[in-house]
Amino acid sequence: SKKILEEEATKLAEKAKTLEKLSASKDAPSLLLEASYFMDIEFPSASKKKLDELRGYVTATIEGHHFYKSCGGRVSATLEMAERLLEKGECASEVKEMFRRQVEPEFPEEGSIVDVKHVKLSGSVFNLGKATIESLDADRLTYSRTIKCDGIYDGLNVPKEAGDKAVSETILGEDYIITKYLSKDGVLKGAYVNLNTPVEIYPNAIRYVDLEVDVCLLPDGSKKILEVNKLEGALNRGLISKQLFEKTLKKAKRILEDIEIIS
């Protein structure tokens, strides 16, 4: 409103006067005022759902609100329109169905090409490359990537060759991804079970937060847990809670004991 803009302009004018006075009494270079700090915060799937719940207590909220907002573009705009209709008292079931029909074409389907965004606890985001959606339904997602360069698969200690195929599968809502590494001829080289936050499927990307720990499974049947020290480091640095640390470690041990999970 006009009043808010006027108040903001007054505050800025006062700050300008303060800076002018401070600059007159100090030698350059010198700190005049502490600046504001900004940061990006990653809200994984479970956090978004909790925020949806809290928002729903105070205003009309479509399930998945924070996820759809983070999609941006047409999805976010359609969400805003739908929630305005709910605020006006329109039939909730009709509005939600309209919203679903409008945004559904924006999301990937079988055969779509998407990026794989692997988010580290430090905040770094690694794009693992382009992946093809092999299958997708209400319960399960399978996608594949073609390996582009030679090397060694960490933990497996077997050659990584250009042309290998990485086939990943996850149950939607679960906190792990199973990735099998196959040669050009379809021979299994080994598999990783990556512990992570539940996968989110955006219009152009698959995204999750890596919880550092992996379970490594070799073709000969041997298996081991990798990088527990990184999970411990994240706990010590305050990046994760003790509860999440214990939950992740417990899940890794259960996967290690249950070879059927990758059959």
Rank of each mutant, 00 (worst) to 15 (best):
T10Y: 10
K15F: 07
K17Q: 11
T18K: 02
S25G: 09
L31F: 12
L31M: 11
Y37I: 11
Y37P: 01
D40F: 11
F43A: 11
F43N: 09
S45C: 13
A46V: 04
S47L: 12
S47E: 14
K49E: 15
K50Y: 13
L51E: 06
D52Q: 05
V58Q: 06
T59I: 07
A60H: 09
I62T: 04
H66P: 02
F67H: 10
Y68G: 01
G72P: 09
V75G: 05
A77H: 11
A77K: 15
T78R: 08
M81R: 12
E83V: 08
L86I: 07
E87M: 07
E90Y: 08
C91W: 09
E94K: 15
M98D: 06
F99Y: 13
F99M: 07
R100S: 15
E104D: 10
F107D: 03
G111V: 10
S112M: 07
K117T: 10
K120Q: 15
K120R: 15
G123C: 10
F126T: 15
K130S: 06
A131C: 07
D139E: 08
D139Q: 06
R140N: 08
T142I: 14
Y143C: 01
R145C: 14
R145H: 12
Y153A: 01
G155C: 10
N157K: 14
N157V: 15
E161C: 12
G163I: 02
A166P: 04
A166C: 05
V167E: 02
E169I: 03
T170C: 15
T170S: 14
L172M: 05
Y176Q: 07
I177Q: 01
I178Q: 00
T179G: 03
K180F: 01
L182M: 08
L182R: 00
D185R: 09
V187A: 05
V187Q: 08
Y192T: 00
N194V: 10
T197C: 09
E200D: 09
I201R: 04
Y208N: 06
D210R: 01
V215F: 04
P219L: 08
P219I: 09
D220M: 10
G221Y: 12
K224W: 10
K224E: 14
I225L: 05
E227R: 14
N229W: 12
K230Q: 12
L231Q: 02
L235K: 02
G238S: 12
L239Q: 07
I240N: 00
Q243E: 15
E246N: 14
K251C: 03
K253G: 00
K253L: 05
I255D: 02
D258M: 14
I259N: 09
E260G: 15
E260F: 14
